[in-house]
Write a protein that binds this DNA or RNA. Structure first.
Length: 300
DNA sequence: GGCCAGGTCCAAT
DNA sequence: ATTGGACATGGC
């Protein structure tokens, strides 16, 4: 028997399908999700969010229903372009993932793509994870660090060069590294994450954003890089560090939300971005009630 | 076939 | 501090 919650400013589909989380599938409008020890089904009809098998508090937590999305949107709505992106994917929220699962997933994501990441992560769950019932079928939890296979076994699952990273990450997680990070300020959390082999700037930022609630983190991947250069850097290539610095300042404390909306937009509308030309930042700073003065790298 | 994929690491400037 | 290649595998 499903329970339900009344939700506003929430879009389940956008949220799950935006590429931040991989452990879901969809059949007849119903999503089946496994996060940590919880496996559940969830679907949305307008402002009603239906779910099974888990407490309401978990649903509210995992889907970040406590985030004040209108306030977040207001804060990152710095220009007409962002306004349009926000409108198009309204209701997309950043999830609260399990730190270990998120770390493993984004180490797996290195030089890969969403279909393959999803398959790799499912393979690891099937090979090493615990079996749990869900809606008459069986699901597999993602393995805890102790349950992860060795490098050899991971290579057999076609993880390639990521196999060694994953094995080392599991070892460090087992030693408690990820537990220390909760509660650290974001810079220190980032440095600590980067101790893990296979975790450098980009993956660390993903974990900060998707698991530790550092909503100002701004992961720069190939899509975000292309989109940011095209839209905010006049098409002139620049470094990931400059893109990140600019975004953190331009979008402010919820830059990570801007990143996820941008990522979704860039993936689904690349042609549109290519055709649109770069964004005129002077008009952005001149918009009433918005962002009085921002530093714009490369533009006097 | 070659190139690129939600990058990172290491060596050589 | 920055830059080029290697790293496994898969899809176009």
């Amino acid at each position: 028997m499903p329970q339900h919650l009344t939700v506003r400013d929430f879009d389940l589909g956008c949220t799950l399908e935006s590429g931040q989380f991989f452990r879901w599938d969809k059949a007849d409008g119903v999503y089946r999700v496994t996060r940590g020890e919880f496996t559940f089904r969830v679907w949305q009809e307008g402002e009603r969010l239906y779910y099974t098998d888990v407490p309401a508090a978990f649903i509210r937590y995992f889907f970040s229903l406590d985030h004040d999305l209108p306030a977040v949107a207001c804060s990152i709505d710095r220009d007409p372009f962002m306004r349009e992106v926000l409108r198009r994917y309204w209701g997309l929220r950043l999830l609260r993932q399990d730190p270990w699962e998120c770390t493993a997933a984004f180490v797996t994501s290195i030089a890969s793509n969403i279909p393959r990441i999803t398959r790799n992560v499912e393979d690891m769950a099937r090979a090493f994870g615990r079996e749990v019932p869900c809606g008459g079928q069986v699901a597999r939890q993602f393995p805890r660090p102790v349950q992860m296979g060795g490098e050899r076994e991971l290579r057999r699952l076609r993880l390639g060069f990521r196999a060694r990273y994953l094995h080392d990450a599991a070892r460090l997680a087992q030693a408690g590294l990820l537990d220390e990070i909760a509660g650290l300020p974001s810079h220190e959390a980032r440095e600590t994450l980067m101790v893990i082999p296979g975790v450098a700037e980009k993956v660390a930022d993903c974990v900060l954003l998707f698991a530790y609630g550092h909503l100002g983190a701004f992961p720069v991947d190939t899509w975000i890089r292309k989109a940011m250069i095209r839209i905010y850097f006049g098409g002139r290539p620049t470094t990931d560090l400059r893109i990140r610095r600019f975004a953190e300042q331009y979008f402010g404390r919820y830059a990570g939300y801007a990143q996820q909306y941008l990522y979704m937009y860039a993936r689904q509308n690349w042609e549109e971005i290519e055709g649109r030309g770069s964004f005129d930042r002077d008009s952005a700073t001149a918009m009433p009630g918005i962002n009085p003065r921002v530093a714009v790298p490369g533009v006097p």
